[in-house]
Design a protein around this nucleic acid. Structure first.
Length: 419
DNA sequence: TTTTGAGTTGTTCGA
DNA sequence: GTCGAACAACTCAAA
């Protein structure tokens, strides 16, 4: 049996290879785990269904989908299997879940092959054997470590066991083939990626993050095709961030919910008086912030530059805890990845690895004018500003706070927790 | 152990 | 409008 989790593909799939080496026939299983789906918004759930639909197609319509707790469900479905093959999960919940399932499986062996990363978390270490805490040295060591070539796997080499029972997938359109999307990005947008990727008004990013999140693509597949040009190096570095944060969370699993830097436990937060809801709904009066938050609700995705701007606003203008924002992102983002999300937030808040200097407070107006110079991004998501022309659209519009004042408050509070 | 160089993503102010 | 300096010291990585 192959138990799929965040590796919803059949190409370049080491666990499939390991299963196929043992048997010519296999059951393909996915468990709808209530623990993971409980807080997921509609966009996120729909996206998962569309990924499962694609995987089901690759398996000739024979993917078993079952709802329940994996500790009960997996041994039940695996009753007639010799072994259960998985891609290893390095997240805080996945590690515990897999250990519990392994125990519940008894004599049926749980075989871990591969991971969602080019280099498995925990593998890149400093000379003294301890983990990196700064990105750039990690990236250099990670590149030096290298990674395997893509595994050559093919769903048609396996005789997939017919479904018995389980859940019917909703009738949704499968997600697009990730490989043509990658090829188009590689050929058309990668050359300008270094600078254009910061522009939310342009279609300049890869948009591959949801595919990486659910494992329809393995990063190794992309890395194998990258060269040394500027755009290639920048994109490889972005993939390295994903691996760095997975590594950080592997070594410090508690940082999914707690400050990486403990002195931030002393940070003073404000009481919420409705401003959190205003932020969530895109009603802060700062156009670029509102555009981003509305894009998140409408599409389950937000441009990376705008994620930083809205995160900075929540933490430094509204003085609310980063984990509130992180939770909201995880509920809605179709690419929401615990390690990247929580540590991206901690980076903005200043409590994480390689944290921003405390005096670096994003100005939502300046950021808008700089990265959405035409104002097109704002007008796309904030219809009430559609008649405002050019970059004037970035001026606050009935703002819920005064940025200059809140900046001073934030600086004072950061000053107060310095060691 | 000591030293040295370096560290994703910014803003403001004054010349 | 453009540009450089100031903003602060701290931690990390490696020699």
């Amino acid at each position: 049996m192959i138990w799929f989790r965040r590796d919803l593909r059949t190409a370049d799939h080491p666990a499939l290879l390991s299963a196929a080496e043992r048997s010519s026939s296999a059951i393909g299983l996915f468990v709808l785990d209530d623990r993971l789906l409980a807080s997921a918004g509609k966009a996120r759930t729909d996206y998962l269904h569309r990924c499962l639909r694609r995987l089901d197609d690759e398996l000739g319509g024979r993917l078993h989908v079952v709802r329940g707790n994996p500790v009960d469900v997996v041994p039940e479905v695996a009753a007639k299997a010799d072994s259960v093959h998985i891609s290893a999960d390095y997240g805080p919940y996945g590690r515990k879940r897999d250990a519990a399932v392994e125990k519940a499986l008894g004599d049926v062996e749980l075989v871990r092959s591969g991971s969602p990363y080019a280099v498995a978390p925990g593998r890149v270490l400093k000379g003294d054997g301890t983990p990196f805490k700064v990105f750039t040295p990690f990236r250099r060591a990670w590149e030096g470590h290298g990674w395997r070539k893509p595994a050559e796997t093919d769903a048609s080499t396996v005789d997939w066991v017919a479904k018995r029972g389980g859940e019917e997938l909703p009738d949704v359109e499968p997600v697009a083939d990730p490989l043509p999307l990658w090829e188009k990005f590689r050929d058309e947008r990668l050359p300008d990626y270094k600078t254009a990727r910061d522009r939310p008004d342009l279609d300049a990013t890869s948009r591959l993050s949801p595919y990486l999140r659910w494992g329809l693509l393995h990063p190794r597949t992309l890395l194998a095709e990258l060269g040394d040009d500027e755009g290639d190096a920048t994109f490889r570095s972005e993939l390295a961030w994903r691996e760095f944060y997975a590594d950080v969370l592997w070594h410090r699993p508690e940082t999914a919910t707690q400050n990486y830097d403990a002195k931030f436990d002393r940070m003073e937060h404000d009481e919420d008086d409705g401003r959190f809801t205003a932020w969530q709904e895109g009603r802060t009066g700062f156009p670029i912030v509102d555009a981003g938050m509305r894009q998140l609700l409408a599409e389950g995705w937000m441009h990376n530059r705008v994620r930083m701007i809205v995160a900075s606003f929540l933490v430094k203008d509204l003085h609310l805890p980063w984990w509130w924002g992180a939770r909201h992102f995880m509920d809605h983002l179709v690419d929401g990845d615990l390690a990247s999300n929580q540590h991206g937030w901690q980076w903005v808040a200043g409590s994480g690895t390689d944290a921003a200097p405390y005096f670096r407070v994003f100005n939502p107006i300046t950021q808008g004018e700089k990265f959405d110079p035409s104002g097109d991004y704002v007008r796309r998501y904030v219809p009430e500003l559609r008649d405002v022309e050019g970059k004037a659209v970035h001026q606050p519009h009935d703002p819920i706070v005064d940025h200059a004042h809140e900046r001073q408050v934030a600086l004072a509070r950061y000053g107060a927790i310095k060691s």
